[in-house]
Write a protein that binds this DNA or RNA. Structure first.
Length: 223
DNA sequence: CACCAGGCAAGTA
DNA sequence: TACTTGCATGGT
């Protein structure tokens, strides 16, 4: 009796991960040498092609300024000119400074120390920084600090919406909960899953959709 | 030329 | 709460 519990199917959210991972393999995210570079990249990548964020980081690295104090000591105008290729450069210079101010004031400029703080209170502190919203906060938490939080982005919304895993207009928090409630609580899994969604989204689920027909998900997902 | 890319905040109703 | 707009470079 109760044998049927053993054969209860995995949730579709979990099966989608298996399918993507089987098809693409590990994505090795986040590209970046240090947690600090990853956090900076998360801000510079906002609504921007990753290639352009990379150029901005390269500019900072070339000048040997990729550390919290050097960047914070830089005049805002100079910082803006370094991150210019990532777009929205005036805003992003401010956001970087806002983030650096928190990092320096509360954690001595040490991301590792920031990572010692408990997840939900740290998330609130990141969200309180001007220019850091839910996706950027969660990207820093997951990819720079290895915290167990699922990152939702435009691809996640588009793929899930198109395949009717949730309503098109679902909120960030609703989608995040849907994924986390249907997956093992596991940092590496969240890491790979988000990266895989970006991968399949880039190739098969762009805004101006070039037919989702050949996408590796269409075999078992609605639509 | 138009459209898009690993968002966010501020203003309006 | 739910929409709209400004922010901006570089690729297709």
């Amino acid at each position: 009796m109760k044998k049927e519990a053993l054969s209860f199917p995995f949730p579709i959210i979990y099966r989608m991960f298996i399918a993507l991972y089987s098809h693409y393999g590990p994505q090795h995210w986040w590209p970046g040498d240090t947690p600090f570079e990853i956090a900076v990249g998360a801000i510079l990548a906002q609504n921007t092609a990753w290639r352009n964020a990379e150029r901005a980081i390269a500019n900072i690295k070339e000048k040997g300024l990729l550390d919290p104090y050097s960047l914070f000591d830089l005049p805002e105008r100079e910082l803006a000119s370094l991150v210019r290729p990532s777009g929205y450069y005036n805003q992003k210079a401010k956001v970087l400074r806002n983030f650096l101010a928190l990092l320096i004031r509360d954690y001595g400029g040490d991301l590792e120390k920031m990572g010692e703080e408990e997840l939900s209170s740290l998330r609130d502190k990141l969200l309180a920084v001007r220019g850091i919203g839910p996706e950027t906060a969660d990207s820093i938490l997951l990819y720079a600090l290895n915290k167990p939080i699922f990152v939702v982005d435009a691809y996640t919304m588009r793929i899930g919406g198109r395949h009717k895993l949730f309503p098109e207009k679902a909120s960030y928090g609703e989608v995040q909960r849907l994924f986390m409630d249907n997956l093992p609580y596991d940092v590496s899994l969240y890491n790979e899953y988000h990266a895989l969604l970006v991968r399949v989204g880039k190739e098969h689920c762009r805004k101006r959709s070039r037919e989702c027909s050949s996408c590796p998900l269409s075999s078992f997902l609605p639509q």
